[in-house]
Amino acid sequence: MTARLALSRVMAVAWKDLTTERRSKAGFNGVVFMAAITLLMFGFALGPDPAPIRTAAAGLLWLTVLLSGVLAFNRSYELEIEAGALDALLLYPGGRWPIFAGKLLANLAFVLLVEAITVPIAGVLYDLPLLTPLPGLVGVLFLGTVGFVTLGTYYAAMASRVRAREVLLPLLLFPMLVPLLVAAVGATKAVLAGDPMGYGSAWIRLLAAFDIVFLAATFMTFDYVIGE
């Protein structure tokens, strides 16, 4: 497959997924609402004293992202299955990784957009100073989301095609995400405390390593997952 054809496919799949999402909106609104309600419920579980909430804020924020974002990944393939289009996708000759890359890009845009709404809500609810550490925070959110979406898009290719898909996806995905959660929360805490170049950098390096390892592994093995 030439680079031009691969790029054309990646963009076509990403554009198609995002257009469908933009026009139906059901998925996006549902996920944003789920995120907002999760942030609220964490508050009720830990409040009303604001101190424990502020201490736990970085962890709560990332748990909210993981718990609501996981709802997006199966949809990405259900879209194909409902339209009966998965077979058609598989019949384009050449490797299947552009399909994965396209879906990954679409899911990445989706989850980043959910975060763009969720994080300010968390800032208000948990009284977090978001403006000063904003560049560092955006960087950490991006790195963490890339790893999350990579594995989510990958495992959903399997989970969405078996019975009990709602159960199987978190069962496969969440144990794998423990290092990402630990590193993302560590980095977010550091950034929020106004120390972006200090002890946060170790966590940021771990996040980057996680992303690179699993981007490579998923791209190399996607053909095995999506076929037959």
Binding site: Y154, P175, M176, P179, V182, L206, F210, T221
Partner: peptide, 14 residues
């Protein structure tokens, strides 16, 4: 394979 790849990362992070 992905699970095994994750073992050292898990250990290091924890």
């Amino acid at each position: 394979i992905l699970g095994a790849l994750n073992v050292p990362i898990v250990y290091m992070s924890v």
